[in-house]
Design a protein around this nucleic acid. Sequence first.
DNA 1: AGAACCGCCTGCTTGC
DNA 2: TGCAAGCAGGCGGTTC
Length: 257
Amino acid sequence: MPELPEVETLCCQLQKIIGGKAIRSTKVFDDKLAGAGNLKAGIVRDVKRVGKRIHIGLDNHTSIIIHLRMTGRLLWRQNSTRPEHSRWKMVFKDGNVFLVDPRRFATITIGVSTSEKITNDLVAGFDHTAFLKQQARRRVNIKTLLMDPKALAGIGNIYACEILYCSGISPYRQASSLSLKEWKRVFATAKRILKKGIEKRGTSISDWRDLYGRPGENQHELKAYGREGKPCKICGGRIQRIKQGGRSTFFCANCQK
DNA sequence: AGAACCGCCTGCTTGC
DNA sequence: TGCAAGCAGGCGGTTC
């Protein structure tokens, strides 16, 4: 599922291939996305990631904002053959960008461009002080907090598990129980893991593919997620799987305190 | 106010 | 083998 590194990968690829180009037309294939039909054609000025959202800024002061949610993907195709489960497309002189989304959770919003600045993105702009003041004392478990888009941008289940495992912090811990030293360790670890994810063009466990349909390589870097019952790479104990807020958490009870 | 829960979706896996 | 139930989960909206 697309999280920060996957969305970043797409934004960079999009910027390169559609930046400066004119959108000839768009087409909606799924009534759920009917709102995307109101787009006035324009030239792509820039493609930016805002959290997990893809902001495609046009020269006519509007933006196409895409959130891929669970199974959404963007696919570049030189020919106009519709891939299976395609829900929307953007047509350029030399090719098409398809939104492919089997489960239909993805959203497209047409909005006015804003220069909103995000301060809770560990890779693209993070305000430690604001975070510690507003989020660090919350009475939720740390795992849930890491995944809360209002607390931190772009972190989903896979990266949340990896960040806690590599930080040596138990997912059961209340956010409010972490010391400043532990928070700093979490921040540093998270930055490292997210950047690695970007370098590897995302984590392809099941269906993630980049703009050109290629899987990423970060699945080979995972140390906790999806490894239930397998040996912990640090202590050799068993990785456990529990449910938190309806989502699976993978962790090592011995290494994560 | 803030934490917990629900609903949106459909393809794949599991159990009988 | 076939079919139904279970599962996956981001996140906005609703409820507690």
